[in-house]
């Protein structure tokens, strides 16, 4: 396995706000790598730097061995990008959007034509190729953008929130495309997402990013295993009492979170009755109790002490203040 991306101490500041804080990691060739985190965590900023759209404040990175600061055009030739916001020309047809891109990347006419046909077939837009993009649905536009990002045969493809705002069916469909692409074309794919299942299902490895820092990086399975077994969520008017009552050796971890207590343990199904009995004898009231296999959401919670949604609410106020600052 060779290294497709090498990132070292990459940092980006906007005035006082540190959007990306000293991150370092490598991405291997042919990998689907996920940057998972709430909105405003620094995912898009990281991607902007790696795609040479934004200069890092400090640190360095290489894409296919090419330095992002010293050879912008070299990097740009070897990457494809699908931006978070749509970037198609709605007045042009699907074919014309592809053709424009092909010409910008100086692909010779005959090869260009052949690849466009091939890619439009891949994303199942062949029969709509002469329709104006304005008439396309969100999912179709996304597929067209992915096809366009692949036209110049990049070896690394960046997907910034590729399924944002799409319905679940289209989302599943797109995941399949992305997985097939990585497998069949051997393209390294780096995607950002704040959907836990997306990272879980699609990515070989996931970096969890929050406040500009990488707080965990591993395969989704290893991350979930790190939780220490299954997750039992107990809701109670007196959560502190539960934490005190459950100091047992077979319990890996007990954490209070608002009016909930989150308990990690192996083989939760076998222990659930013991837990209930224990709490009953100590006369701790239980409102509800639930068991589930750990998800990346639990991983995020265990590392940050917050759910991803709480983090997003936090970030939104911060970003709003930040934007106001920048504007004035």
């Amino acid at each position: 396995m060779t290294v497709a991306l090498h990132i070292e101490n990459l940092t980006r500041r906007f005035n006082d706000l540190v959007a990306v804080d000293n991150i370092s990691f490598d991405i291997e060739h042919g990998e689907i790598f996920g940057l998972l985190g709430p909105n405003g965590a620094g995912k898009t900023t990281t991607l902007s730097m790696l795609s040479t759209m934004l200069k890092p404040t400090s640190g360095s990175a290489t894409v296919n061995g090419i330095d992002i600061e010293h050879d912008e055009d070299g990097v740009r030739k070897s990457i494809g990008i699908v931006f978070q916001d749509q970037s198609l020309d709605e007045e042009l047809t699907a074919w014309e959007n592809m053709d424009f891109h092909g010409r910008l990347y100086r692909i010779p006419a005959d090869i260009r034509k052949q690849r466009i046909t091939e890619l439009l077939r891949l994303v199942e837009l062949e029969d709509r190729k002469n329709d104006i993009v304005k008439t396309f649905s969100g999912g179709m536009r996304r597929r067209l953008e992915i096809a366009r990002g692949l036209l110049h045969h990049p070896s690394v493809l960046f997907l910034d929130e590729p399924t944002l705002g799409l319905d679940p069916q289209t989302r599943n469909h797109l995941w399949q495309y992305i997985a097939t692409l990585a497998r069949e074309k051997g393209i390294t794919i780096i995607l950002t997402t704040h959907y836990m299942e997306e990272a879980d299902q699609l990515c070989n490895r996931v970096a969890i990013i929050d406040h500009g820092k990488i707080i965990a990086l591993d395969t989704p399975q290893n991350l979930k295993d790190g939780i220490g077994g299954d997750v039992v969520t107990i809701r109670s008017p007196d959560p502190a009492a539960i934490v005190a009552a459950l100091a047992e050796p077979w319990i890996t971890r007990v954490e209070q979170h608002n009016d909930e207590v989150i308990v990690s343990l192996q083989n939760a199904e076998q222990h659930i009755s013991t837990i209930v009995t224990l709490l009953n004898t100590k006369q701790v009231p239980i409102q509800s109790i639930g068991i589930h296999k750990p998800t990346l959401e639990d991983v995020f919670l265990s590392f940050t002490g917050k759910t991803i949604r709480e983090e997003e609410a936090n970030h939104k106020t911060k970003m709003r203040m930040f934007q106001r600052m920048v504007r004035h």
């Binding site: 055009d73 931006f83 990347y105």
Partner: peptide, 13 residues
């Protein structure tokens, strides 16, 4: 505003 400029600016031109 419609994002198309990004597509042009990120190309190696």
């Amino acid at each position: 505003q419609f994002g198309f400029l990004k597509e042009t600016l990120v190309a190696p031109v």
